[in-house]
Design a binder for these strands. Structure first.
Lengths: 165, 165
DNA sequence: ATACATCGTTCCGCACCGTAACGATTAGAG
DNA sequence: CTCTAATCGTTACGGTGCGGAACGATGTAT
């Protein structure tokens, strides 16, 4: 009894510890860890990358809106934007429409940093599937997308940043 | 410029936020979160399951050996085994060969619990790939295993329990 | 016999996260 | 216009989990 409950005649891919679920969980962890590592030299973490990216897409957003889109609680956004502002990547401008809110904008430096981070992310994406042919990569991508769709995952929003629902 | 650096003519599957890497990272998170949730009614967490499983495979192991195999620091093993012992699932027996070490054994209750957890894990594995045909599941499994192999992942050992290196 | 390594344990500081308050500002009701 | 409720950003606080460092007990080597 070293590999499961006694008389289990399951297909080999359905085995806790070696099955698809565990495999994806393992891979997901090492991949995101690796991404964090190759992003570190820029002084950025994955969440910073996501925030920068979202600001670039919707310049002038409030912190609230940003937090809502990325499922990040407001209290956390503060420190996040603080960091990015201190590094001169993001500006908190006044919003003439609503003096409570801050309009977030990328600085020139921020734009450069985002492009650099993007280049690194692209290299990372390629590294992930190194060893797969183009056709295999497409297959894998298609299969994973179906799993993600079945779980209603939102592209670009990492669920680790927003547990509750 | 809402979707990447200006002139990037990359294949669509290579896009941070929507690429294979991010997809696996997303899926890995929700899958392990889900697994934690369906295991909770037993009063167990995923790590407890892994520990129980390993003890079953190598009854009489020391905590040290167990921690080394699963890449869990010794100081954490204590609390882990404490919990399992308090629930009557594991026994710390004396080791006549070495009075420093504790020989870990499953109780009858522990064995029952492990089987139950295993059943739940199997159901989870099936749920993960629900919506895929058998052939697709095999394809996916094969592709993921190649990625895992390329990254030297050890079956049954989740890297989240061992960051360093 | 002495010095060093190993096992399990406890202790402590670190980092992180989310809730609950708070002042400032805005929107809505009367 | 006034008063009240909601919203935005911020700060403070408590809870949690993790791993390194030290410790006593025991084993091993010289």
């Amino acid at each position: 009894m070293t590999d499961g409950p006694s008389g289990a005649d399951e297909p080999s891919c359905v085995q806790p510890g070696a099955g698809i679920g565990f495999l994806i969980s393992q891979l997901g962890y090492v991949i995101s860890t690796r991404f964090r590592a190759i992003l570190a030299p820029l002084g950025l973490e994955p969440r910073h990358f996501l925030v920068l990216r979202h600001i670039a897409r919707a310049e002038g957003s409030s912190q609230q809106a940003l937090g809502q889109a990325l499922h990040i609680p407001a209290s956390r956004m503060v420190g996040l934007v603080d960091t990015l502002e201190q590094r001169g990547l993001v500006e908190r401008r006044a919003n003439p429409r609503d003096r409570r809110a801050r309009a977030l904008h990328l600085t020139e430096e921020g734009r450069r940093m985002l492009e650099e981070a993007w280049r690194i992310a692209l290299g990372h994406e390629r590294a992930v599937t190194a060893g797969l042919t183009g056709e295999e990569r497409d297959q894998l991508f298609s299969l994973l997308r179906r799993l993600a769709f079945a779980r209603e995952l939102v592209p670009g929003v990492h669920p680790a940043l927003a547990d509750e629902e």
